[in-house]
Design a binder for these strands. Structure first.
Length: 275
DNA sequence: TTCTGCTAGCGTCATGCAAC
DNA sequence: GTTGCATGACGCTAGCAGAA
């Protein structure tokens, strides 16, 4: 470490995206220049002053274990700020933003299913009511009709398309022939805006597998929006954390300079005294 | 002008952890 | 045991700079 924050932070492997080889056994990551945040992380110099670690050395499992033990950015930052440097601001919950998020969260979309082969749009009888649930449009489209056909999707698959409050769209697929077997209900246990489709008369293992896949999709759909927001927050926090560390580095460098200067003066003084 | 490599940012999924 | 949150990993895209 030379005291400066390496631009190739831990974001590098992911941020480089498709340009990076994805074979984990051969990838060499350049990690963040903040080893204190990852205790006992096996690292080594790559010859250019960068700290690197190899996945082949530690293995994915171990790596995950190490990473999972890493405290959150907020925790780290708060510990940093409480331990020293009163100038470092703690990361606190952004109340305004939270409130905004809460209000946005009510726009988690609903979706419904009907018989296949139809393209229907559910219009709002009561626009206000729909708006509060975030449901702007719901469109049922048969993939066989080519409206929004995904690759490798069996012909006849029904696609449930919905539009979120922010304008983004999501799709859920239902295999052909099973749409009729579903009934629509809205259990109170589900969050507002989520309608659950319950299969009836499932017996074969294949149907069970499909059912579990559907359940998984439902769960993911339920979490998707929240997680999108959470990811934004997390990145924001991470940025603040990195900025904080950079500030800390700058402060420490200043202190280091001052101490060197002081040492120099003391040495001079000592030499003159001896003369 | 086109190509290429890099970086930043985003959405999504998986997973660990804490609270209930 | 379940649920929600935080965050790492991954894939994708857009923008930019330098090279051909």
């Amino acid at each position: 470490m030379d005291g400066s924050i390496d631009d190739k932070s831990e974001d590098s492997p992911s941020s480089s995206g498709s340009s990076q080889p994805q074979n984990l056994s051969t990838v060499v990551h350049t990690i963040t220049a903040v080893p204190t945040a990852i205790p006992n992380q096996p690292v080594e110099e790559d010859g250019e002053g960068h700290l690197v670690r190899t996945d082949t050395d530690i293995g994915i499992e171990k790596r995950r274990e190490i990473l999972s033990r890493r405290p959150s950015y907020r925790k780290i930052l708060n510990e940093l700020s409480s331990a020293e440097a009163p100038g470092i601001a703690k990361i606190e919950e952004d109340k305004e933003e939270e409130a905004a998020i809460t209000s946005i969260q009510t726009t988690i979309p609903s979706y419904v299913q009907t018989s296949a082969g139809q393209t229907i749009q559910i219009a709002a009888a009561n626009q206000n009511e729909l708006t509060t649930q975030g449901l702007q449009t719901i469109t049922m489209t048969n993939a066989g009709q080519g409206a929004v056909t995904a690759a490798a999707m069996p012909a006849g698959t029904t696609i449930v398309q919905y539009t979120q409050g922010d304008g983004s769209q999501q799709f859920v697929t239902v295999p052909a022939g099973e749409v009729q077997a579903y009934q629509i209900r809205a259990p109170s246990s589900l969050p507002a805006g989520v309608v659950m489709a319950t299969p009836t008369g499932i017996t074969s293992p294949q149907q069970l597998a499909e059912e579990s896949a559907r359940k998984r999709e439902l769960r993911l759909m339920k979490n998707r929006y929240k997680n999108r927001v959470a990811a934004r927050e997390c990145r924001k926090k991470k940025k603040e954390y990195v900025k904080c560390l950079e500030n800390r580095v700058a402060v420490l460098e200043q202190q280091n300079k001052a101490l060197i200067e002081e040492l120099k003066q003391l040495k001079d003084l000592y030499c003159h005294k001896n003369e």
